[in-house]
Design a binder for these strands. Structure first.
Lengths: 118, 118
DNA sequence: CTTTCATATGAACATCTGTTCATATATTAT
DNA sequence: ATAATATATGAACAGATGTTCATATGAAAG
C-alpha cells in the first residue's frame, strides 16, 4: 500500500462505520474461498456443462457433442469441476459418466439465473 | 471442431439422452450472461467489497482502508460492479457512497457461502 | 496381444484480468 | 483563483485462464 494513501485514510474515513463493518466481516480466507467458488461458475463452458448435468447423467462424449465443444476442452473443464467437488464421476467400461455432486450447485445457479432473467 | 471427433460422436453418444437435454437447455446467450455474472463474483477484491456493503453504505476511501486495498484498485472494481448493476452510488460532496443495488446479491453470495462453509 | 475407442493429461499459446502508476476531474475550503 | 481532497480513468505490465495439439492411459473387441 503506497504511503500517500495515509493522507486519505485519516481524513475522509468514517471510522465508526468502518470499525463496525470490520467486526462483521468474515475471515479473509473464507472470502477468498468464496471468490474461488464463483470463479468456477464464471466460465461459459463450465456453466453449460453443469446445466446439462441438471437433466441427466452424461458421458464426456455426450457433453462434447451436446455443446459443440472439443472432447479435450470438456475433459479439462470436468477435471476442474470435479476437483472443486461440483460434479462426481462414475466409470462404466470405456465411458465415464458425470453428474452433479450436490444440490448447492442447482441453488447457486438458480439464484444467478433469477438475476440474469430480469 | 476437428474432423476426427466425428468418429466419437457417432459411436459413443447416447443420442436419446442428448436430444432430451438439448431440448431443455436454455439459450446460449442466457448461459453466457450467467457465466458473466458469476465472473463478477469470482474475484476476492470484488467479493470483499460486496460483503462490506452488506453492512453499510460506504465511500471509496472507507472501503479502501477497510480492506487494505489501494484507492485506485477499489475504484476500478466499483466501476465494474456498478456497470453490472450489483452496486449503486450516491454522491455527497467530495464523497461517493456505494451500496448494494438489489437483494439478489445477498442471496447469491449467501448460497455460495453455504457451499464454502461445509 | 494388438487394435480400437473413450477419456485424460501436459505443454504451448493467445487472451483476458487485475493491479499499479500517472494523471484527470470535480468539489470544497482558503 | 488556488490549493487540497476524493474519486475516476487510461495505459502498461504481470499473472492467470482456457483452448488446442500431441500424446498417454485404460478398457473392450477382434
Amino acid at each position: 500500500m503506497p504511503e500517500d494513501l495515509e493522507r486519505c485514510e485519516f481524513q475522509c474515513v468514517h471510522q465508526d462505520t468502518v470499525n463496525k463493518v470490520l467486526s462483521l466481516l468474515p475471515p479473509d480466507e473464507t472470502l477468498f474461498d468464496l471468490a474461488e467458488l464463483f470463479k468456477i461458475f464464471g466460465d461459459s463452458t463450465r456453466i453449460k456443462i453443469l446445466y446439462t448435468l441438471f437433466e441427466a447423467e452424461l458421458c464426456v462424449c455426450d457433453i462434447s457433442q451436446l455443446l459443440g465443444v472439443s472432447q479435450t476442452a470438456v475433459s479439462h473443464q470436468l477435471r476442474i469441476l470435479k476437483a472443486n467437488k461440483l460434479v462426481k464421476s462414475r466409470k462404466d467400461g470405456k465411458n465415464v459418466f458425470y453428474s452433479l455432486a450436490d444440490s448447492h450447485v442447482r441453488l447457486i445457479i438458480g439464484q444467478g439465473m433469477e438475476h440474469v432473467e430480469e
